[in-house]
Design a protein around this nucleic acid. Structure first.
Length: 101
DNA sequence: ACGTTGACCTTCG
DNA sequence: TCGAAGGCCAACG
């Protein structure tokens, strides 16, 4: 099924991230066919509808860190979810073991 | 239709 | 390695 909406294509890419792996916004955008829409990926995830089982927590920024401030509840929740999948955290950074490169 | 915002990325110092 | 500045493009008011 071809998604004409870039929005839905991003969902497919994020959903295609294997468990225990992570991807940057830039990579998700590139795999979605929009190398310049890195920011838009974040906008889409923020606008993500409730009830969607999309693994948005597997998407990090280019620095290999979470996109939320450390004092944010979402930050701790995302980090916990990633560690539960076997993601190796080095301080505030992640091994950035992408799935495709 | 215009200006501002933003879960970003890359380059320069 | 870290910090600041520029660029990019869709969504929102």
């Amino acid at each position: 099924m071809e998604q004409d909406n870039l929005n839905e294509r991003i969902w497919q890419v994020v959903a295609a991230i294997p468990k225990g792996k992570v991807a940057t916004y830039g990579q998700v955008a590139a795999l979605a066919g929009a190398p310049r829409h890195a920011r838009y990926v974040g906008t889409v995830l923020k606008r993500l509808p409730a009830g969607s089982t999309l693994p948005w927590f597997r998407v990090l920024n280019a620095r290999g860190e979470l996109s939320f401030p450390k004092d944010s509840p979402a930050y701790q929740r995302q980090r916990e979810a990633l560690e539960a999948e076997g993601v190796e955290f080095i301080g505030a950074r992640v091994s950035l073991v992408s799935f495709g490169v």
